[in-house]
Amino acid sequence: MLDDRARMEAAKKEKVEQILAEFQLQEEDLKKVMRRMQKEMDRGLRLETHEEASVKMLPTYVRSTPEGSEVGDFLSLDLGGTNFRVMLVKVGEGEEGQWSVKTKHQMYSIPEDAMTGTAEMLFDYISECISDFLDKHQMKHKKLPLGFTFSFPVRHEDIDKGILLNWTKGFKASGAEGNNVVGLLRDAIKRRGDFEMDVVAMVNDTVATMISCYYEDHQCEVGMIVGTGCNACYMEEMQNVELVEGDEGRMCVNTEWGAFGDSGELDEFLLEYDRLVDESSANPGQQLYEKLIGGKYMGELVRLVLLRLVDENLLFHGEASEQLRTRGAFETRFVSQVESDTGDRKQIYNILSTLGLRPSTTDCDIVRRACESVSTRAAHMCSAGLAGVINRMRESRSEDVMRITVGVDGSVYKLHPSFKERFHASVRRLTPSCEITFIESEEGSGRGAALVSAVACKKACMLGQ
């Protein structure tokens, strides 16, 4: 009897593995994704193909990295998701002549009506938060230079001027797309009239992360975010950046690689679950690469896999709870928690219980395998993109072996128990001629924006502006 049951459990697990095998990517698959990513990057950089390229390769006008001589107080704003952060950054000489960066910050959550109302409502709310922060720190009387981390696709015309191309991540505030974001912020500050600010720089969160990590390690020339969304930036040779005049030196390019796949480059790798996630998203047909990796989508992918296993009578005796059938019910943090389970399955059992399920031991094991399959594919897909960037940098610099540091931020990278190990191992397999160091950014977005502002202020002083 026991043997029969054991055989049935083994057969069930084997069927589960057959279904989950769809998520496995072979090294040849990853090399294919990497080569296609490089081709799209090239198209994004070139003037004649930029418009139709899915990977936009947006110039950021960040050319210099901090040298350690900029000092002063800077205000930093960070808008990239449902939370908005205001930070005071003091850049100065530390002990023994070292450079020191001290920060104080406060988080504000953005109400739904500000995210989806008008641009005026959104930026009025942001300036209200700045006003509140300055009151708390008794700094209303000071006109501070301000660095703005704005983590949406922007076409820069200068370091302090950028046109919002399109909202992502659930934002829909009308009247912002096609307009200068810094102008919208300046107008809102003017409307309030109770404080003055000098907006000197606007950067993407990947750029802010790279600059913040450069402060720790001067070989950091790539910034990457794996959180709600997924994106990367890197220092490109100016001669390859056709959208900006000049051939000397390097400029940081914001790849906006989340949109890779929007022209069909990933079609052969998309599964039924991916198509369902895409169809029910706020932007169907867009940001397809990001939807395979980002935390906004990972939990939902797992939920759809679990429903398939229920329908195949391989999980929960073929019956799903009402909660499990509800879109968004299986949160991405559950994926991390399930994979963090120590082996007694308590954590998995508790999560499934909150979803109205009474799982068996085998159910718990199957749910864990589903989570591992989805998150491992995410790590491997992400590795193909980064390997594409790094191999490109090595080739354009004609280096036999390139040493490089990548600064990384984002909740999936930082909080998932195995993502970074799987990701690092896969990147290294795909970049055999590179020695890569990964560092995690601390308060990256805010500190990085302030350091970019410090560079901009120093330049302005040198130019006598």
Results as ranks from 00 to 15, higher is better:
R368A: 11
R369E: 04
V89W: 03
R369K: 01
M202R: 05
E399I: 07
G285A: 14
R369D: 01
I404Y: 05
C382W: 06
F330I: 06
M235A: 00
K296F: 15
S151N: 13
F148D: 07
D187N: 02
G178R: 10
R394C: 03
V335F: 06
Q18F: 14
N254W: 11
L25G: 08
A10C: 15
G246F: 09
F152M: 10
S54V: 12
H380V: 14
Y273A: 06
A387G: 03
Y234E: 00
D132A: 03
T332M: 14
V89E: 01
F171R: 13
E443Y: 14
V338W: 00
T206N: 04
S360F: 03
G223M: 01
E40M: 04
R333Y: 09
V199L: 04
F152W: 11
K39E: 11
D205V: 01
E435N: 12
E196D: 03
L88Y: 10
E245T: 05
P66L: 08
I189Y: 04
S64G: 09
I159Y: 09
S398H: 08
L463S: 14
K104A: 06
S373D: 09
S321W: 05
Y214C: 05
M462Q: 08
C233A: 00
V226R: 01
E245A: 01
C213W: 02
L185G: 00
I225D: 01
K190F: 15
S445F: 13
A379V: 06
E196W: 08
G97H: 11
D4M: 11
H424R: 12
A10W: 11
N166K: 09
H50T: 07
F152V: 11
K102W: 11
V207L: 10
E96W: 09
S100V: 11
M115N: 08
G388H: 05
I390F: 08
T60N: 01
H416A: 13
T82R: 13
M37R: 00
V335Q: 07
K420T: 06
T168P: 12
V62L: 00
L276S: 09
K169C: 15
K15D: 15
E300S: 06
R345F: 14
E265C: 03
R369L: 07
G446V: 12
E51A: 12
Q26G: 11
M57I: 03
D363S: 04
T118E: 14
I439C: 03
T362R: 09
R186N: 02
R403F: 12
F330P: 00
A387M: 04
E9Y: 08
V367G: 01
H156R: 11
I439L: 11
D158M: 15
L301E: 01
R377N: 00
H218E: 09
Y413M: 07
S151I: 04
I159N: 07
K459A: 11
M238Q: 00
E440G: 06
G448M: 13
F152A: 13
K104M: 12
L164M: 03
M121N: 10
D42W: 13
A329N: 15
F123Q: 04
V89S: 03
L243S: 15
I439W: 07
A450S: 14
Q38V: 05
P111N: 05
S453V: 13
V33A: 03
D187C: 01
E236T: 05
M121Y: 01
C252L: 04
A456M: 09
N283H: 11
Q138F: 13
D194W: 15
M235K: 01
L292C: 12
R345K: 05
M57C: 10
E440T: 11
I110Q: 15
E96D: 14
K420A: 13
W167Y: 11
Y108S: 04
E237K: 05
T118D: 09
A450W: 15
K458G: 13
V401I: 04
R43W: 04
L288V: 15
V182F: 14
S100F: 04
G94W: 08
Q347W: 04
K104L: 09
T362D: 10
V338Y: 01
L271Q: 00
T103L: 06
V401W: 13
T206L: 03
E339R: 01
R155L: 15
E290D: 12
E120L: 14
M8T: 12
M34L: 05
M197L: 08
T405V: 01
E440K: 03
R394Y: 10
C220M: 01
M121S: 13
E242L: 01
F84Y: 03
D400E: 05
H105C: 08
M298C: 09
S453H: 15
I348K: 05
R155F: 14
D42K: 15
M298A: 11
A384R: 00
L79Y: 03
S340P: 02
K32L: 05
I293G: 10
F316I: 11
E242M: 01
D187L: 03
G97W: 06
W167P: 10
S396C: 10
D247T: 03
L271D: 01
F316K: 02
T332L: 10
D187Y: 05
S353N: 01
C213F: 09
I439P: 02
H218C: 06
D365Y: 07
G227D: 07
F171L: 13
P153E: 11
E443A: 11
A21V: 07
I366L: 06
C382Y: 04
T228N: 13
V199Y: 02
T206R: 00
D160L: 15
Q98C: 09
I163Y: 09
P432W: 15
F316T: 07
P284Y: 13
V305K: 00
L79T: 03
K459E: 11
G299A: 07
N240D: 02
F150I: 11
A329H: 07
R303V: 01
L2T: 04
K291Y: 14
I225M: 03
H105N: 09
G246H: 01
A456N: 07
K32D: 06
A449N: 15
N240L: 08
